[in-house]
């Protein structure tokens, strides 16, 4: 392996093979080479493989037109008939062509090994000299080396061409600004918390101890919400979960004493790790687990991280009850929701 050129002679002596190369072994014929019966058999075998493949291709066409798909698909043994039949026939016709070709090569094609000699990857000394000379001539004739003004200005021109290329990509997207710091909860005070999908507003007495509601702001269920909000992007920040615990089990921080209603607390549903929505709530332990990377938050303890890769507590939404007795937000989240980013501080 190691043969520093400076120790060339020494290496050569050591490398000398203790056993001489006996040379290529003699070619031995296969049964199909010497036995005509076996040869015929191999021939029939290969032909049969190709023929079955051809039949399989025709069956594909038959299957294509005879099995129904769509709303009421044909089903065979609990599987989609069209899909499985098409796949099996096509797969078989491909596979058998392959197996046939390999069998042909192994049994019937000439199998004498051939020796080919290698040449060093490097080009010959002469070629190299000629190429270098041509290169030198070319550069000399271009006169670039003699005219530094032309050369430098050309380099400048070419170099600055990169700037438009980069600048032209500017409109890929808007600048972040403070977009990540706000959610739609900040649009106004007392936005009702409603159940996602159904839009049901929630009264505190509707919730039992141990209950979980996957919620959204009521704004998304108002008429024309589709036009007013970029729903997907806003949902990605505003989604919440509402949980109810025994009030005496909650260890709210001093400034969060009035953020809940009778043991009902509301947290962001977006994980502070990389932003998966979380709603694996264990009602007995009050732990919330993220299914993506298993960050675990203690909702009875201000959303503190107790396990996993997340670094920050889950943001909590201060809630209260509106004039009609429904749960509603006090304000926006007091910190940005979702994954960390550089400017977050």
């Amino acid at each position: 392996m190691s043969a520093p050129t400076e120790h060339g002679a020494e290496v050569a002596a050591a490398v000398a093979d203790p056993i001489a190369d006996p040379g290529l072994s003699e070619h031995q014929p296969r049964p199909t080479d010497v036995d005509p019966a076996k040869e015929k058999r191999a021939e029939r075998q290969v032909a049969a493989l190709f023929a079955i493949s051809a039949i399989s291709s025709i069956l594909f066409v038959v299957a294509y037109f005879s099995f129904k798909i769509g709303e009421k698909p044909d089903v065979v043994m609990g599987l989609g008939a069209s899909h499985v039949a098409l796949g099996l026939t096509l797969g078989l016709s491909l596979l058998l062509i392959g197996v046939g070709a390999i069998q042909l090569a192994r049994k019937l094609m000439a199998d004498h090994e051939i020796v080919e000699y290698r040449h060093p990857a490097v080009s010959s000394e002469e070629d190299r000299e000629t190429a270098l000379a041509s290169l030198r001539d070319g550069i000399a004739e271009s006169g670039i080396a003699r005219r530094p003004l032309v050369r430098n200005s050309m380099l400048l021109g070419l170099g600055l061409l990169g700037v438009p290329v980069v600048v032209a990509l500017r409109d890929l997207g808007p600048l972040p600004g403070d977009a990540l710091e706000h959610t739609v909860w900040g649009r106004r005070k007392l936005i009702r918390l409603v159940q996602d999908v159904t839009g049901t507003p929630i009264k505190p007495e509707d919730l039992e101890i141990g209950q979980l509601v996957n919620g959204q702001p009521e704004l998304f269920f108002e008429d024309g919400a589709n036009e007013t909000y970029d729903l997907q992007s806003e949902k990605a920040k505003a989604a919440i979960i509402i949980v109810r615990m025994q009030p005496d089990e909650i260890a709210a921080a001093a400034d969060r004493k009035d953020w809940g209603v009778d043991g009902i607390l509301c947290y962001s549903k977006i994980c502070t790790h990389v932003g998966c929505p979380i709603s694996l709530w264990e009602q007995q332990t009050h732990h919330l687990l993220c299914p993506c990377h298993q960050s675990t938050f203690d909702l009875a303890d201000n959303g503190r991280v107790i396990f996993g890769p997340a670094a920050r507590a889950l943001p909590q939404l201060p809630i209260t009850v509106d004039s009609e007795g429904y749960l509603a937000s006090q304000s926006d989240f007091l910190e940005p929701v979702g994954p960390s980013y550089w400017e977050r501080g």
């Binding site: 499985v84 796949g87 099996l88 797969g91 596979l95 058998l96 392959g98 197996v99 070709a101 390999i102």
Partner: peptide, 16 residues
């Protein structure tokens, strides 16, 4: 032949 074998095996996987 190996091309057909690879595509055949993949197709069978896709089928089943």
């Amino acid at each position: 032949g190996f091309f057909f074998i690879v595509s055949g095996v993949t197709t069978l996987m896709g089928a089943l």
